[in-house]
């Protein structure tokens, strides 16, 4: 009884963490279906991309916004990215760029497996939720020039 209860509690505790990473199917270099079938919101995505605590995209990328200063240049400029990539291609690059290039420098934003020495505060959690990934994809899709 004790053991069964403990096992149940463990399972309950583990469930939300596993559920934090949405299942996805890779076709070529893209994930064409939105994660969990969610619709993205470009306005929210724009805020996520600028957030210095969470996504922190701007430590490595520039976006076409003259109000932003001290943007990074480790990754390519995101201006015009919608002309280069489909939403499905953007989605896979956000979920886990090492699926395209093992040496990728860009962090995997929706992955928890096979990471080493993750700080306890972030263990078992992806950087961005499925909804946030969809919001960022929606925002990137607006960068057409």
């Amino acid at each position: 009884m004790r053991q069964a209860l403990a096992a149940l509690l463990l399972a309950l505790a583990a469930a939300p963490a596993a559920a934090q990473v949405a299942p996805f199917v890779v076709t070529g270099d893209a994930v064409s279906a939105p994660l969990d079938g969610l619709a993205g919101d470009a306005g929210r995505g724009a805020r996520i991309v600028r957030n210095r605590e969470t996504a922190n995209c701007l430590i490595c990328h520039t976006i076409p916004d003259p109000r932003e200063t001290f943007m990074g240049e480790v990754g390519p400029p995101l201006a015009g990215v919608a002309l280069r990539l489909t939403p499905g291609q953007m989605r896979l690059r956000l979920i886990d760029p090492t699926r395209i290039n093992r040496e990728a420098v860009m962090p995997a934003y929706h992955r928890i497996a096979d990471l080493l020495r993750v700080d306890p505060r972030w263990q078992g959690r992806p950087v961005l939720t499925a909804q946030e990934i969809e919001d960022v994809v929606a925002y990137l899709a607006t960068l057409r020039e």
């Binding site: 701007l58 430590i59 990471l115 080493l116 972030w122």
Partner: peptide, 21 residues
């Protein structure tokens, strides 16, 4: 290592001289 999955060298060898913010 870490949630961002980067090695020291990915910044300090491969991206030397680039701006990080």
């Amino acid at each position: 290592q870490g949630q961002l999955n980067l090695s020291c060298g990915q910044c300090h060898d491969e991206n030397v001289g680039r701006r990080l913010r």
